[in-house]
Structures are given as structure tokens and as C-alpha cells.
Design a protein around this nucleic acid. Structure first.
Lengths: 136, 136
DNA sequence: CTCCATTGCTACTGAAAACGTAGCGCAACG
DNA sequence: CGTTGCGCTACGTTTTCAGTAGCAATGGAG
């Protein structure tokens, strides 16, 4: 089921646009497909190959969802982003530049923060300062 | 296993930063947790509640991964984004504004593109125009 | 001081999603 | 016509997520 704004989606009962988007983008391979299509349209097998041989069944499911969400359309070249999809893709580009800085920061830290590192949130009986009211 | 730049991650053999990021963000609930933390820090149960009662086991896994990636840290208020994490969160904000436009576009289209709609990529024996060389 | 409510998770099971493979049917090339 | 390559689909297996119960630590109330 493709998450779209206005309908309840995983993570939201209200169907807020950003919630629908987070749900869709949070599916395995979705961001990667968008990323690849941002660079160039492609056929099914081309996309499969560019996504490191993702399984055809999952790729097909993701393509159908992206199409249902009108981020992607079928053309003579195979699959390409719609205008909306391209606009989204431009915003993904900014993630790339962020990621370069991230990688540098991780390198200087030498390793990912170890899971065994002390520092888990202490148990407490009183609630910590409340966050904002529930979104959704 | 937390995807980090420099190591092979799902979707990439080279460990390119953007690939590690796409892998991490493409996990269920990851974007949503980042989105909620962008707004305000929170305790475990607060985050759980703000993420529409996500299961504690998955939330715990996601928090650990985000922490290993140094996007999140433990503080007196519970969990909060690191400086890097906040920078990423700002970029997520831009997705929100995009999503508002998306929702409008979908409304005027009246329904998500039906899966049963004709227009799947036609079979062909010759490859379509090739996309770029494999990324990853 | 004791009791007990609340917290941060963990353990565990079943459901859903992803993975991986084989192969069908169509298109088109030789 | 036979063969090759394409876009998927079907199906079984593995992994991840969803959901629940509950433990141990914390600390507020009496």
C-alpha cells in the first residue's frame, strides 16, 4: 500500500504529507531508487544493476509505489522522475553534501560509537522534560 | 549493523557516504525518529509516543544505530541530536515544504496513480538507452 | 522506611517485508 | 524460424519489523 498524504499511513493517523513521505522514503531501497533516477532515467534492468542488483520483486514494488505517488513515470527511456520527483531529487542532493562532511567527522572519531559504550539513558521514575505534543 | 561511510553497506560495495546514508535512512522508522528529534529531544517513552507507539525493540535498535553514526547522543533530557544530526535535520525540513506541494498535486490528481493503470514499461529485446555507469 | 508507579529497555514470538532464484511471455534480431 | 534479452511474476527462504510481557532501576508518596 503506497503511503500518500491525506490517508492514514504508518506513523501517522492524520495522513500529514510529511508523514506519508517519511513512510514512503523509509522503505528499503526507496531512497536509492530516487537517487539513481535523479541522475538518469533507466530501464528496469538498468535500475536493478545501478542499485547493486536489488531483487526484481522489491524493485518492482518500489517502482509501483513511486509511480502511485506520482514521483515517477513511464517513458520511452523506461522509468524517469516526474517534475515533482525531480524537485524531491534536488533536495536529496543536499543530503549528499551533508554526507561528505559526516564521513569526515566519523573518520576523525575513528570508529562508530560503540554500542557497548556506557551512556544509555538512565532509568528514572519521573518523566524527563516532555517533548512536544504528539505529531501525526 | 549500522551503515557508516567507508565500509560496505547495503546498496554499495564502496561505502560511499551517500550510500551509507541512504541505507541508514531507508530503515523503518529512522527518518521519523530524526524528524521528531529535530523538533525536540526526548526520553525513550516520549519518542515512542511521538512516533505513534513504535515498538520498543525497533526504536531501541534505531536509536542505537543513530548513536553509532553519531547523529544522536544521550543527554540529561534523554536523546537528542548531535550537531551533525541537527544539520541533517535541517535538510529534512526542506522535505516537509516539498511534501506540502506534493499533497496539493496529488489532490488535484484525485487519486494515486492506480497500479492497474496501463503503462508498464513495454517489453523489448534491445536495451533502452543506458543510464550512467554503476554507482556505489 | 516501605510501597508502588514509572521508566528504559530486553526477551520472545508471529507477521510482514525483503531477499534470491527461476522462469514465463513478449519483442526483436539474425 | 530460433535465439537472445527484456520486464516483470511466482514462490520459497531469510531478515526485519510489530507487538506484547515484563524485569530491574529509580524516585515519589505516605
Amino acid at each position: 500500500m503506497t503511503p500518500v498524504p491525506g490517508r492514514p499511513v504508518r506513523g501517522s493517523r492524520s495522513g500529514r504529507p510529511i508523514m506519508a513521505l517519511l513512510d514512503l522514503l523509509g522503505r528499503r531501497w526507496c531512497l536509492r531508487v530516487l537517487w539513481e533516477l535523479r541522475e538518469a532515467p533507466g530501464s528496469f534492468r538498468s535500475l536493478q544493476s545501478r542499485c547493486d542488483e536489488v531483487s526484481p520483486s522489491v524493485l518492482n514494488t518500489r517502482l509501483a509505489e513511486l509511480r502511485a505517488a506520482r514521483l515517477l513515470e513511464v517513458s520511452e527511456e523506461g522509468y524517469r522522475l516526474t517534475a515533482e520527483g525531480r524537485a524531491l531529487g534536488e533536495r536529496l542532493l543536499q543530503l549528499s553534501s551533508w554526507a561528505e562532511g559526516w564521513a569526515v567527522g566519523l573518520e576523525s572519531a575513528q570508529a562508530p560509537a560503540a554500542g557497548a559504550e556506557p551512556g544509555a539513558v538512565r532509568r528514572r521514575r519521573s518523566p524527563l522534560k516532555a517533548g512536544p505534543a504528539n505529531g501525526g
